[in-house]
Structures are given as structure tokens and as C-alpha cells.
């Protein structure tokens, strides 16, 4: 994919074609999107249920956890919107469709993610935005320019981190197509993990799911900075503003893993 801009244009064109196709079933589309919007609230409802029983979770109030949830969830839903079709990679490999992507003059990753585009996933984006609205309205934050800037930068950085995790993890199916469920542990698992303050987890679970898989940089660290909250874990403050850099590093690593995996597939697959 040497021409990112052209590819981005193609991605938009593809998405537009899909949206046109899906809009032909207008009722179905509306039902799906509204349904997705409503059911994503059940996801957040778990957090509300927790706070119906306790005033604080690991030293975080309901509004603070809502901010964690909203940022993590927004980042994830944007990732899901853009590259959610990666979940179908094992199917593409099993039925041989992946081979067809290899004989086209474009990057394979780009082609896999553009195989499908489900606009109903916008429902989840909308729900995340509403929770973000709720969190921002109920929080007592002094909005200095640096905090605003960090909040704005955090969303795409978080989405990039999740996307990198997803790409890297799904590569397991190039070795065994049955392995995709293990990828869920860090993709869906990582998202779930990042929706709660990471100080409630055990130290070694944090090492695995917060730092090695860098989900702590999606919401936890930026939220500490935005909220002006002391880190319960006592980690250096510069970590709280390093998410964009971590995201770039993660994307680089994921790209390398993908290339290695496709090469492995090309020498062993068939």
C-alpha cells in the first residue's frame, strides 16, 4: 500500500457503495442501527449496576469510570467500524478467498478490511458518544487547552491502538484457522479490560493486558491526566500523555506482524 491517500479514497468509495447497497433495505438498516444503539446501552448498564451497589470502584467515581468507558468504547467502535471485517479472516482463509486478494495489486490487509462495511456499527459509535456526553456533563473538570488537546488526540490514538491489537492478534489464524477465538482474548478482552480502572486488576494481569497489549494507553493514562487524578499505581506522569506515540509504535509492530504472517501463509498455506 504505497499510496495511502489513494487507498483512503478507495476505502471511502467502497464504504459509500456499501452504504448505498445497505440503504436499499431501509427498514432493516434503521432497525439494525437503532437496535445496535439500544443494545450497546446494556453494555454500559453493567457499570451502572455496579455503581448502584457501591459509590466507588477502585477509587473511581461513576462519572470517572464513565469517561474511561466512553473513550475506550468510542475508540473500539471506530476500530470496529473500520476494520471489523477482520473477524471474518479465518473464513476467507478457509474458503480460499484470501488467495484471490493475493493476486490483486493492493495490500492484503487493506483488501480484507474492505470486504465488508456494516453501517449498523455506527449505532455503537453513537452510544459511546452519548456516554461521553454524560461523563463530560457530570464531571468537574477544569478544561485547560492541554486537557482538551489530549482528549481529542486520545480518540484516534486509542482507535489505532485497538486496530493494531486486532491486526496483530488475528494473525494467529494464518497458522491455525481455529485460533481466532484466542484472538478474542486480547481484542474484545482488551476492550473490556480498558473500560475499567486498571488499578483494580492484579499486577501480572496488568502486565499482560495493560502494558504488553498496550490498552492502558487507550483510556486509563489519558483519563488520569484529563481528570488531574493521582495515579493509584504511582507511575510516571509522562506516560499519561504518551498515547499517540504508543499508538504509532503499535501500528508499526502490527504491520510487521501482519507481513510476517502473510509470508508464512505463502510458504506453508495452500
Amino acid at each position: 500500500m504505497g499510496e495511502p491517500l489513494e487507498s483512503a479514497g478507495l476505502f471511502l468509495r467502497l464504504s459509500a457503495a456499501r452504504i448505498r447497497a445497505q440503504l436499499q433495505y431501509r427498514t432493516s438498516f434503521a432497525l439494525q442501527t437503532v437496535g445496535m444503539f439500544l443494545i450497546s446501552f446494556l453494555d454500559f448498564a453493567a457499570i451502572l449496576v455496579i455503581f448502584a451497589n457501591v459509590p466507588q470502584l477502585g477509587g473511581w467515581s461513576v462519572s470517572e469510570v464513565a469517561l474511561l468507558y466512553a473513550i475506550s468504547s468510542l475508540a473500539f467502535s471506530l476500530t470496529d467500524l473500520a476494520i471489523g471485517h477482520l473477524d471474518y479472516l479465518p473464513q476467507l482463509i478457509r474458503d480460499g478467498s484470501f488467495d484471490l486478494l493475493l493476486v490483486r495489486p493492493r495490500g492484503t490487509l487493506f483488501q480484507v478490511v474492505t470486504q465488508d462495511f456494516q453501517i449498523r456499527r455506527i449505532g455503537k459509535v453513537a452510544q459511546s458518544l452519548m456516554v461521553l456526553g454524560y461523563a463530560l456533563a457530570t464531571l468537574d473538570v477544569i478544561w485547560t487547552p492541554d486537557r482538551v488537546a489530549l482528549l481529542i488526540a486520545t480518540i484516534p490514538a486509542g482507535a489505532l491502538i485497538f486496530a493494531s491489537i486486532w491486526v496483530a492478534a488475528i494473525c494467529i489464524v494464518f497458522w491455525t484457522t481455529e485460533g481466532n477465538e484466542a484472538a478474542n482474548a486480547v481484542t474484545y478482552g482488551g476492550t473490556f479490560f480498558a473500560q475499567y480502572p486498571i488499578n483494580i486488576y492484579d499486577r501480572w494481569l496488568r502486565r499482560f493486558l495493560a502494558y504488553l497489549i498496550p490498552t492502558a494507553f487507550v483510556a486509563y493514562f489519558p483519563c488520569l491526566y484529563i481528570l488531574g487524578k493521582a495515579d493509584p499505581l504511582g507511575l510516571p506522569v509522562w506516560l499519561q500523555v504518551s498515547s499517540p506515540l504508543v499508538a504509532l509504535a503499535a501500528a508499526l509492530a502490527a504491520g510487521l506482524i501482519w507481513r510476517t504472517a502473510v509470508r508464512h501463509y505463502q510458504s506453508a498455506g495452500g
Binding site: L57, E178, G179, E181, V186, G189, D202, L205, L209
Partner: peptide
């Protein structure tokens, strides 16, 4: 292999949920 992969994911989620609920 699918069973093993599923078990791995189940277990990771088990740890997360246990810690979250313990925080209550």
C-alpha cells in the same frame, strides 16, 4: 485447537471479571 483457543479466552475473561467484581 479451537477448543483450546476458546478456553484461553474464557480464562482471560474469567480473571478480568473476577478482579472487577472483587473491587465491589
Amino acid at each position: 485447537a479451537a477448543t483450546l483457543a476458546g478456553l484461553f479466552t474464557n480464562t482471560v475473561f474469567g480473571f478480568m471479571r473476577a478482579f472487577i467484581l472483587l473491587a465491589l
